[in-house]
Design a protein around this nucleic acid. Sequence first.
RNA 1: GGAUCCGUAGCCUAGUCUGGAUAAGGCAUCUGCCUUCUAAGCAGAAGAUCGUGGGUUCAAAUCCCACCGGAUCCA
Length: 570
Amino acid sequence: MVSLKEELAAVLEKAVGKGLVKQDILTIIEVPPQSELGDFAFPCFKLSPAMKKAPVEIAKQLSEQIKLPASFEKVVATGPYLNFFVKKSSVAKQTLSAVLKQKEKFGHSNSGKGKKVMVEYSAPNTNKPLHVGHLRNDSIGMAVSNLLDATGHKVIKANLVNDRGIHICKSMLAYEKWGKGKKPNKKSDHFVGDYYVLFNKHVKENPSLEEEARFLLKKWENKDKAVHALWKKMNKWAIDGFKTTYKEFGSHFDIWFKESEFYNQAKTLIKDGLESEIFYENDDGAIVAKLEHHKLPNKIVQRADGTSIYITNDLALTKHKFEKFKLSESIWVVGSEQNLYFKQLFKIFDLLGFKWASQCKHLSYGMVYLPQGRMKSREGTVIDADDLMESVGALAAKEIKKRYPALSKAEQTKRAKAIALAAIKFFMLRIDEAKDLHFNPEESLSFEGETGPYLQYTYARAKSILRKAGKKQVKPDYKLLTENIEKKLVLLIYNFPGVVEKAANTLEPHLLSQHLLETAAAFNSFYHALQVINADSKELVATRLALVEATSWVLKNGLNLLNIQAIEKM
RNA sequence: GGAUCCGUAGCCUAGUCUGGAUAAGGCAUCUGCCUUCUAAGCAGAAGAUCGUGGGUUCAAAUCCCACCGGAUCCA
């Protein structure tokens, strides 16, 4: 389907002649600030020098000469702008009939033409439970995966568990000292996390605990049997706990990697790097990647004692990813504090000559802050993921009870869960991924205004109309959609696939979030201004029902792409 | 010390990549609207030196430079 914009650009190219080609014109065409002005606009300033005329006159002249494209009904010169109006009925027919035919899920999974992409997200540490930061990470990771999937790519969702290192040793040490033999008496990842907090509490009085933890890590390095047994036991507790949280939140993974499995697996890479003089050996024996000529600080890739650090494991894991899974692209959903790290990592891949180096992308997102500042898990000042879901769920349940006291307990719980998750996820996905997010547990999660529940509510309203209307007897007549608000809705529905495409290409789910808010707002205005079931004629009822159905389809599919459930009743 | 990101009404954000018409929403405040399809909604009022200063341009929230403030990372 040729887009309206392209149709317009083709005609403008002919009318304007020389200077500008279609590609230029496409970037110049814009949407006027008020819909009354028109649906598309062409500012004539750029033509002024070549035509040696004032933009206002050019607009006037073009408005008289131009031959309108088939989908357009009117062109008006407003000052220096050429404003075009689309033919409502034909766009409505085109858009709505196309949407209504697509009863199924939006998009075309695995069309075969797309890329094979791995999206790595979440990346928990096994010394503590998941917190709001992970929820932002997971929300973005899932949304991006869904967007890529819907736009024809094969997506592999991966979770890299950071299951080794000094942080785990701290939890292990505290457990050895103050919890030895105890079994989890609460959610098992929380049980493990408590010992991490306990360690950090005691280390203030007793700094030698740091030394003991390092000693434990040494023993782990040396494959001490008892230490490995404890490590495995506590990691299992942690990961079992994560799995419950993921299930509740709706995070899915196709594959799990563990950092420990790639620990010290980069020996060949290190050797190659040394031979090709991309790496060099420091005086103390540490291996360093020479990046200073590439406007980056040098990066240690292996410690003086020969042990791996995080980047060493990433070197090995990434090579494994691309080779084993034959990826065309790999995306890391990781916080912005790692921006430099990923620049260095990708530059090292590039220098080592991996041709997939250019297909590595860091989807950087802003940090989540609490009113008291940065979260510090060592001090326990974090918003726990499980606690948050539970408290928002309780809040949602209260709201439901207020509205529908007679509703069954089971239905109440079901709805409360869906609404709470929508509130949390949409809060994470509404804003630009790159921006830091200041999270205030008391104020941040509302069910009103620009929220997930608002979108769910709008969907439920639309579905309610469709339920009450029953079966249509008459065919829609798209010429009957004459109101401005109807036209606005049609154009928003029309734009939905394009927005999804762009959000997928730029890895910016918030573009979709914003579009859904606009669509919902337009639908609610429509809902209040005009009657559907009680409209003047049978034909108008049928036509508006088609509009309602198409809107509900956009909302449902849009929400699902954001990994948010659309609920039929609310 | 160096690098990167951010700064838009009391608060939270969209718009910045790709410059274009009166800077667009939400929260909070105020006024209306439930005997018509779900009021978690709608309509309206009020609220902005787009951090500051300079530059480029017919045109700057948007591009460039400097500075201020905040965050992050590196040493």
